[in-house]
Design a protein around this nucleic acid. Sequence first.
DNA 1: CAGTGGTCTAGACCACGTG
DNA 2: ACGTGGTCTAGACCACTGG
Lengths: 234, 234
Amino acid sequence: MKKILYLDIVNDIKGKIEKGMLRPGDLLPSENEMSDQYDVSRTTLRKSLALLVNEKYIYTIPGKGNYVCEPSSNQYQFYFDEIDSLKGEIEEVKLVSVGVITPGRKLMRELKIGSFEKVIKIQKAVQIKDEVIQYSTIYLPYQKGNPIVEDVINFANFHGIMEKGKLQFQLKKILNIDIVHPPLEVRESLKIDHDESCFLVSQNIISMEDGMPISYNEFYIKRNYFTLFAETTF
Amino acid sequence: MKKILYLDIVNDIKGKIEKGMLRPGDLLPSENEMSDQYDVSRTTLRKSLALLVNEKYIYTIPGKGNYVCEPSSNQYQFYFDEIDSLKGEIEEVKLVSVGVITPGRKLMRELKIGSFEKVIKIQKAVQIKDEVIQYSTIYLPYQKGNPIVEDVINFANFHGIMEKGKLQFQLKKILNIDIVHPPLEVRESLKIDHDESCFLVSQNIISMEDGMPISYNEFYIKRNYFTLFAETTF
DNA sequence: CAGTGGTCTAGACCACGTG
DNA sequence: ACGTGGTCTAGACCACTGG
């Protein structure tokens, strides 16, 4: 037993679950009983239970009690960064093009804009030893006075801007990862055959403040230069 | 303002962060100050802060204070299930083979076993309208009396066993997702050309009790029948 | 109705960081 | 020495579940 009571309790209950003394679906003793058993206040005991709920060991039904969860969830988590997640030492990020375009149907949907609004399109190529391993396109709705747009034009590097925490509000990012045969333009840059395929990571970035899209990005990544590594949450 | 004080405080602080009134790196007022400001006990105020820490809005340095986090993490989460995550209505899961093999170098590493130990190998094909879209192999260390092994042999369906919560201990699952040119056997089953590629989802299942591998699985999934969908955590 | 979990308080003591 | 967050208590009132 250590010093911190609520952690000792957490570990004790975790142990009982992992050793099978408590089985999925089992009802734990009431909070009052347990606070007596462990000789702590109910507040402290509840802090332990809160942690166990957080880590998906138990769940609570108000008015009834605390129950042991079914084991082995299928919820995974991973880290993804358009640059850092690539295998090998990145030597250069080349700016391929910057321009203002009229959005097509897909872009209008992704950015939630009308056909009359303009979109900024930025294309980059990520190199490692003369070999292009990622070809990315960033689409930003063009709004005058939007500081992000100005920054991206100035820096021509969306990645750096996002990482430096220049944005003042919380963002939600959504990824879709597929295997695709990339379009001609991408094939030429990545130097892959017409029958070869690669990763397509599509990313939507959304403001948590108002739910409006900030950006829609597509990253084509050559196979062998990216592996998605994920672990179950807790 | 609602009834629950600590949630009101959470939303108030979230709002201030999202609206830019509190910026990344900012130090929040001390807990005593804030509990005065909000006219709640320090305990209640701390419950609010705990939630904000959990959702990555703030972080705490003991002896110094609570700080606003940098926005936009690159931590994502997703759901993966070898069957449920496939696109389309699964019509059949065919058992291709069951057998006991001597492990190769790779399998010895994945299952943390010696060359003298035997391994159970189970192969399945998942079909949708006569088309095989997933070819999977399950490797289990063979130990007599291991209830999992017996179950898998009887059920010939690892998926169902895991989902029904028959296991009494917590598991950790690790995924690696790659694009590969599958081996001949898989190509024939999936009916894909020698130059085509597909997803390879490698899964390690580990007991949280002792850290020992329970199973190593490989799922070859035909492209177009799987998309990984992930969102940032909170 | 009695028992459960959900919320909240006011106060205590500690370890740590800064001066 | 002082202020910070970290831990803990004993007790209160509430809403909900179930017999």
